[in-house]
Amino acid sequence: MKIVIAPDSFKGSLTAKEASQAIHDGFIKVFPNAEYVLVPMADGGEGTVQSLVDATNGKLLEKKVCGPLEKTVTAKYGILGDGKTGVIEMAEASGIGYVTKETKNPLVTTTYGTGELIMACVEQGVKKIIIGIGGSATNDGGSGMAEALGVKFLDKNGNQIPRGGGGLSKLDRIDMSNIDPRLKDVELIIASDVTNPLCGEKGASHVFGPQKGATKEMIQILDSNLKHYADVIKKQLGKDVADVPGTGAAGGLGAGLLVFTNSKMQKGIDIVVNYVKLEEKLRNAKLCVTGEGGIDFQTQFGKAPFGVAQAAKKVSKDLPVIAIAGSLGREYQELYDKGFDAIFGTIEQVQPLEEVIAAAKESLIRTAENVARAIKITI
């Protein structure tokens, strides 16, 4: 019996690889002779680098880069097993985890470090880069990222404008003459499920600005600055990005990538499913087990377990899909019409969060064993 185990990470407690192994350890107690295929998953957000590196036998690297507040941070990135594909999470360099309630300020935070990670991949000789752009602390339209690639953003006097969303008001001219020529031969795949445009009421500043520390006054400034930025891009580079779906992702980093790199957007989970060759691994399976830290009705909107379930049902409508989650949230039952055949939670009693996290591995092993025993009854 072939069993494919393909969970996302259990945030704060287990990586996707550790979760895969824990589910395996529970099932093997009941089905010791089964064939197990472990496929760590992600959806383009946190954990994508680790999952794709694990799934492809790639390598994990580190680089000191400029953080969102222009302090040096150590960021991880990956080179996949093919040696030709890099994978980045922008949050590793420019994420909201690097700012506090007191230091959040999208007028000054920059994506420069994300550009440095892109160049680190280029230095490794890659021909393709997958970049997850969730969890940003920035609202600079990707101008900081582009600066790290060699683009110059100049004011009326020919001086470099200040980094951050606030500095864009001074933008007069974009100088592309020093952009690294190697980027022409590198394809970037932007992993994002965000469909917001760059500007306007549904744009980057209005929708995502508040969580990055923007006040009502700041939001108006930031949105006006991104509109000006888009106008300069359209006038000087001939690219109209103000209203393109997805350009508002990560404070406009989506727009910056589309303008200054050879890139395209895809749903994060679709990218991961493709790169780990999930459908191929699901062929001839008798059971698919997925999961993540929390499952609720929102799981169907691009989360990893949903992508796994869809891939499984594409391979065979009769392939059972079981999900195991740390916690089951609101209206998770909606997923029974979305490719899931059974859903289980691991938390057995009320206890402090730190105790739940500490016991996550044992709880997952125990729940997986219980699921396997229930399955055995029906065989």
Rank of each mutant, 00 (worst) to 15 (best):
N284I: 01
G307T: 04
E279M: 08
R283W: 00
A311N: 05
K281C: 04
A312N: 01
F297Q: 11
P305N: 10
A309E: 11
S327F: 02
N274L: 10
A309I: 02
S327D: 07
K313Q: 07
V308W: 14
L287W: 12
N274M: 13
F306Q: 14
Q310W: 05
I295A: 11
Y275Q: 14
S327I: 10
G293W: 07
L319A: 08
Y332G: 06
N274V: 07
G307D: 02
G302I: 06
A285I: 06
K338T: 07
G294F: 10
A312H: 08
S316Q: 08
Q333T: 00
L335K: 05
G294P: 06
P320A: 01
A285Y: 03
I322E: 05
E334N: 14
D318A: 10
K303Y: 03
I295P: 01
C288S: 04
T290H: 01
D296E: 04
E331Y: 10
L282T: 09
D296Q: 08
G291T: 05
T290I: 06
G307V: 13
A311I: 07
D296K: 11
L328N: 02
E334G: 00
Y275N: 14
F297S: 11
S316G: 13
K303M: 05
V289L: 07
L335H: 06
E292H: 00
P320L: 06
N274W: 13
I324D: 13
G294T: 15
V289M: 12
A304V: 08
G294W: 02
V315W: 07
P305I: 10
Q310D: 07
E279N: 04
Y275F: 15
A325M: 13
